[in-house]
């Protein structure tokens, strides 16, 4: 199968790994990790400034220096109104119409509120945004989001920061098969590079992760490991892996075995 390059909202991408910018031990490690990851898209947010520090400014200059495309998020937004207003603010500050849309319902799982998500997506699409919705793996939700004008979907692997990997690979596979032509990016819950490779082997177009790199013992090495895993998973998917079987099938030919006609020793 041809390994066709990825394009999101008309922007061609060489890297299928997208990374978040939160929770790194230091700005220097953040910068090194992003470089090691090869990511061309990084997520950012808007927040109230803590205290009198102007840390927001240095963060923003650092991100601009790295040259990555920013994808602002509406993290923490609990309502359609909050998400839409946050998106509008982000568009002005970050000068991009791309928005990672999060409308969150629950404190424990930080699960998307599917109803608010569809409503906010429709409003933002009409207002000219390129929406990348953070969603569950629900097929009906996917259909509604596409119907609302989303051209990319970002289903969770597992709850944000949980590091569990792909909690429901069967549902993710069904989603992939149902919408073969929509760019699908696994977002949230990834813990190790094996999870990322698994996502790519399912045929997903990319993986977005943050905690698994930022809070690893060595974020820079882990970023590189993830880059390799995403590339490996993609190559593997396009190379058409063998299907799984329950019974054995010898890989070495049976014909020409030595000792073939002698009775087996007891």
């Amino acid at each position: 199968m041809e390994n066709r390059p990825l394009a999101i909202y008309g922007t061609p991408l060489s890297s299928r790994l997208l990374v978040g910018t939160a929770q790194y031990p230091s700005p220097a490690i953040l910068a090194e990790a992003i470089k090691a990851s090869g990511a061309e898209i990084v997520t950012v947010s808007l927040r109230r400034e803590a205290g009198a520090s102007r840390s927001g400014e240095s963060f923003w200059s650092l991100i601009r220096e790295l040259g990555a495309k920013v994808l602002p998020n509406t993290a923490g937004c609990r309502s359609v109104k909050e998400a839409v207003t946050t998106a509008q603010m982000a568009r002005e500050v970050f000068a991009t119409s791309w928005i990672k849309l999060e409308v969150i319902a629950d404190d424990d799982l930080l699960q998307p509120d599917p109803f608010g998500l569809v409503e906010a997506a429709a409003i933002l699409v009409r207002d000219g945004f390129n929406v990348l919705p953070y969603m569950t793996e629900d097929l009906v939700l996917a259909e509604k989001l596409i119907g609302a004008g989303c051209e990319v979907l970002m289903p969770w692997g597992a709850p944000i920061g949980s590091g569990r990997g792909l909690n429901n690979p069967f549902a993710l596979q069904a989603l992939r098969r149902r919408f073969p032509h929509v760019p699908l990016i696994i977002d949230a819950g990834i813990g190790t590079p094996a999870h990322a490779a698994a996502a790519m082997e399912l045929g997903y177009d990319g993986v977005l992760l943050n905690t698994a790199i930022a809070k690893a013992g060595d974020p820079v090495s882990m970023a590189r490991a993830f880059a390799l895993a995403v590339e490996a998973g993609r190559l593997a998917y396009c190379a058409e892996p063998i299907p799984p079987r329950d019974m054995a099938e010898p890989s070495t030919p049976q014909l020409g075995r030595a000792f073939a006609d002698l009775p087996r020793r007891a």
């Binding site: 978040g20 939160a22 953040l30 950012v44 808007l46 109230r48 998020n73």
Partner: peptide, 10 residues
């Protein structure tokens, strides 16, 4: 009033 600045995000 909300006054927001660019910040880290996932």
């Amino acid at each position: 009033v909300e006054i927001l600045v660019p910040r880290q995000g996932g």
